[in-house]
C-alpha cells in the first residue's frame, strides 16, 4: 500500500486526504486538515500533549500511523466547543485558572473528556490517575484537578 486517498472522521466531519503509510496522525490533523489545536511536544509518549480520542480512547496522535485511524471516530480539541459555546470542561479550565502557557491544555481536556465519559463522579485520585499521561510544566496540577471536579459537577447537572 502506498499513496492513497483516505477518509477520516474528525469531530464528526468527514475529510478526504491523500496520505502515505509513514504519515503520523498528528501531521495529518495539523498540516492536511489545518487542525492546529493538537500539539506536538516530546514525540515519545511521555508528555501527552498530542492526545486525541480515537473511538473514545485517549491516544498519542504522534505515535499513531494515520493509515490506522482511517474511518475511526477521532475527536480533537476543535471538536469540543459547540459553535462559540465552550464545552463545560473547557469552561471549567478557564474559570479555575487551569491554563497557563496552554500547550498541554488540549491533551488535558481530551483525557478529561475520556474520564468523564466513563465516570461522571470521579474522586480526586481518579482524576490524577486519568491524567497521569499528561504533563503540565506550569500549573502544578492542583488547578487542573479542581477544574475537572467543577466540570464533572456541571456535566452531572446536564450543563
Amino acid at each position: 500500500m502506498g499513496k492513497e486517498i483516505a477518509n477520516f472522521i474528525v469531530n464528526g466531519n468527514e475529510y478526504e486526504v491523500i496520505i502515505e503509510p509513514h504519515m503520523l496522525l498528528i501531521d495529518v490533523l495539523r498540516d492536511e486538515m489545518g487542525l492546529m489545536g493538537t500539539k506536538y511536544a516530546c514525540g515519545a509518549g511521555d508528555c501527552g500533549s498530542c492526545t486525541v480520542l480515537i473511538d473514545g480512547k485517549p491516544s498519542f496522535s504522534c505515535l499513531t500511523l494515520a493509515v490506522t485511524a482511517k474511518g475511526k471516530n477521532i475527536l480533537t480539541i476543535e471538536g469540543m466547543a459547540d459553535g462559540t459555546a465552550l464545552h463545560p470542561i473547557q469552561q471549567a479550565f478557564v474559570e479555575k485558572g487551569a491554563v497557563q502557557c496552554g500547550f498541554c491544555t488540549p491533551g488535558m481536556v481530551l483525557s478529561t473528556k475520556a474520564l468523564l465519559d466513563e465516570n461522571s463522579e470521579p474522586t480526586r485520585d481518579d482524576v490524577k490517575t486519568a491524567l497521569a499521561g499528561n504533563l503540565c510544566r506550569c500549573t502544578g496540577y492542583v488547578k487542573i484537578v479542581d477544574a475537572v471536579e467543577v466540570a464533572a459537577g456541571t456535566m452531572r447537572e446536564g450543563g
Partner: peptide
Amino acid sequence: IVSVQTKTM
C-alpha cells in the same frame, strides 16, 4: 504503568 494513553494503545 501510569500513562493512560500508553495502556489504551
